[in-house]
């Protein structure tokens, strides 16, 4: 363990990230000036609805965007333990390959996007260990068995030879986590890893990720649409709307005292029944629709749906304002928001 002086507190600093897609209908700017930091050993949740740019942000960091997409601006400064910050955008592909899968790895909603259907799961983990860490075949196999045990797969000596299709959905998710953690990464990007799972299995996987993250002092970016999960797993949260981060801060602050009308509206959409009131079964949908990604408004993208807009909201994108230490909002009117 390097001493505190050498260890930077920040694992990843993303500054003014821009990613765009070239579509038949025109350029879609899926990420427009996203800024956030991930500190060592903490979990940052990126939360948003479909089309908010939350997954594209993760894919941009990982450098695995689809062919028609590219990062067009900004910096992604990754600091390995004891090392200097290096901009992932500027790393040559050869260097990037050493980072990806070894120091930064990613898990997905669909485990089959990581697992190869024609190889046993143990073989896939062992191959990663041989490739990145130069393990001998025997050592790699033993490590694969140990990893499967760590992610809660019972009978790992036997399961190490199982093919992905021989496992249940929850077990496949565990195998994918074992694969992602094989090289003991410093940063894990988890993109909706529990969205397709039943609630009791989701609970198991969330607890597993939280335990592994603590044991390994790993940092995590947890991409999700579910604010309830954010409270469960993250230390800090960045809320995305229409390709931008609109609010960012410690989870308890953002969820209990939201400082952006979108965050508040999203919290109000969560079904909660109040048995003591006549209106206790009423939900509060957000009026209006998301802006057209091909032609976003010039000002605040939430302004057309906002309950408290003013004239200037339409003119320019509101700057990020720090309203208390570590709590930022891109809203000019945050003082008017009532909890």
């Amino acid at each position: 363990m390097p001493s505190a002086e050498v260890m930077s507190d920040t694992v990843l600093e993303v500054r003014d990230l821009h990613t765009q897609f070239d579509t038949p209908n025109g350029i879609v700017r899926a990420v427009r000036g996203v800024t956030f930091t991930v500190r060592r050993g903490e979990t940052l949740a990126i939360v948003g609805e479909s089309g908010s740019g939350k997954s594209v942000s993760g894919l941009s960091i990982m450098g695995i965007l689809p062919r028609n997409a590219a990062v067009t601006g900004g910096e992604m400064l990754f600091s390995a333990a004891g090392g200097p910050p290096r901009d992932l955008r500027k790393l040559p592909e050869k260097e990037l390959r050493k980072v990806r899968g070894r120091q930064i790895s990613m898990i997905f909603q669909n485990p089959m996007s990581s697992l190869n259907p024609v190889f046993p799961i143990g073989e896939q983990i062992a191959e990663t260990l041989r490739h990145h860490l130069g393990h001998s075949p025997a050592k790699a196999r033993a490590a694969a068995v140990s990893l499967l045990a760590q992610v809660g797969i019972s009978d790992p000596e036997r399961r190490v030879d199982a093919y992905p299709h021989e496992l249940s959905g929850g077990m496949r998710q565990r195998a994918m986590i074992a694969l992602a953690l094989a090289c003991d990464p410093e940063l894990l990007i988890a993109d909706e890893p529990t969205t397709a799972l039943d609630v009791t299995i989701q609970d198991q996987i969330i607890r597993l990720l939280a335990r592994l993250q603590q044991e390994r002092r790993m940092s995590m970016i947890f991409v999700t649409h579910d604010l309830k999960l954010v409270a469960e797993i993250a230390d800090r949260v960045a809320v995305m709307y229409a390709s931008r981060v609109v609010e960012e801060g410690a989870v308890d602050k953002v969820l209990n005292r939201p400082a952006h009308p979108y965050t508040k509206a999203l919290l109000d959409c969560i079904p909660r029944r109040d048995y003591d009131s006549d209106a206790g079964r009423t939900l509060k949908p957000i009026p209006g629709v998301m802006p057209n990604p091909l032609a976003p408004p010039p000002g605040c993208a939430f302004e057309p749906r906002c309950p408290i807009p003013i004239e200037v909201c339409r003119a320019a994108v509101p700057p990020f304002e720090e309203i208390s230490p570590g709590h930022n909002t891109a809203c000019l009117r945050w003082r008017e928001l009532r909890p």
Partner: peptide, 21 residues
């Protein structure tokens, strides 16, 4: 009871439900 406890955001008192259906 186990199903309700597994809902995210609810207080976690007990152990999670083990195994799968």
């Amino acid at each position: 009871a186990a199903l309700l406890e597994a809902v995210p955001g609810t207080s976690r008192s007990g152990e999670p439900l083990k195994g799968e259906i």
